[in-house]
């Protein structure tokens, strides 16, 4: 299995993309299978470290949290833009992080940046600190607690 499909997720993604782009016909499904079988082999040359993912409820919960947070912060940022509350203050926060898995950090970076109002700026692997810019910085501790309790635990569950 690993010799035939070194990167099953990548193969599945390529297959899905090919079928979605060309329409569902037998010939194209065959071609998509061929592409999914051969192209991921190129990745072997890069010698990437394989992500170990535990598939389970944590993933569903993470997706739910992300969706909910995106909708909530869309409304919050929209209100800030339109009403412009005078007392608002934005700033950087330094957040200590225990995650070490590179893929988990990537997912966390995408989540933090995709949520309006927060932006991942920099990560220091040695001191395990990340730098985040927050648009509506009311309580620094609350932000740190939110990210640590909600996302970091789930990501540790999924990766590693």
């Amino acid at each position: 299995m690993t010799r035939l499909l070194p990167f099953p997720l990548l193969s599945a993604a390529l297959f899905g993309m090919w079928v979605l782009l060309t329409g569902f016909s037998p010939g194209h499904v065959l071609l998509a299978g061929l592409v999914a079988l051969t192209i991921p082999r190129v990745m072997l040359l890069l010698k990437v470290e394989k992500p170990r993912v535990r598939i389970g409820w944590s993933m569903v919960r993470l997706a739910g949290f992300v969706l909910g947070d995106i909708i909530r912060s869309n409304v919050a940022v929209g209100r800030i833009i339109l009403c412009k509350p005078p007392a608002r203050r934005s700033g950087f926060i330094r957040l200590p992080i225990a995650l070490e898995n590179r893929y988990a950090l990537v997912v966390l970076a995408v989540i933090i940046t995709a949520t309006p109002g927060t932006l991942w700026v920099q990560h220091d692997a040695r001191r395990k600190i990340i730098l985040i810019h927050v648009l509506d910085l009311v309580d620094e501790e609350a932000w740190i607690a939110l990210i640590k309790n909600r996302y970091e635990k789930l990501l540790m569950d999924i990766f590693e």
Partner: peptide, 14 residues
């Protein structure tokens, strides 16, 4: 600038 980075994410997500 750092405040301006945030608003375009509205259009990019929802």
């Amino acid at each position: 600038f750092y405040e301006r980075v945030h608003p375009p994410t509205l259009g990019m997500t929802l």
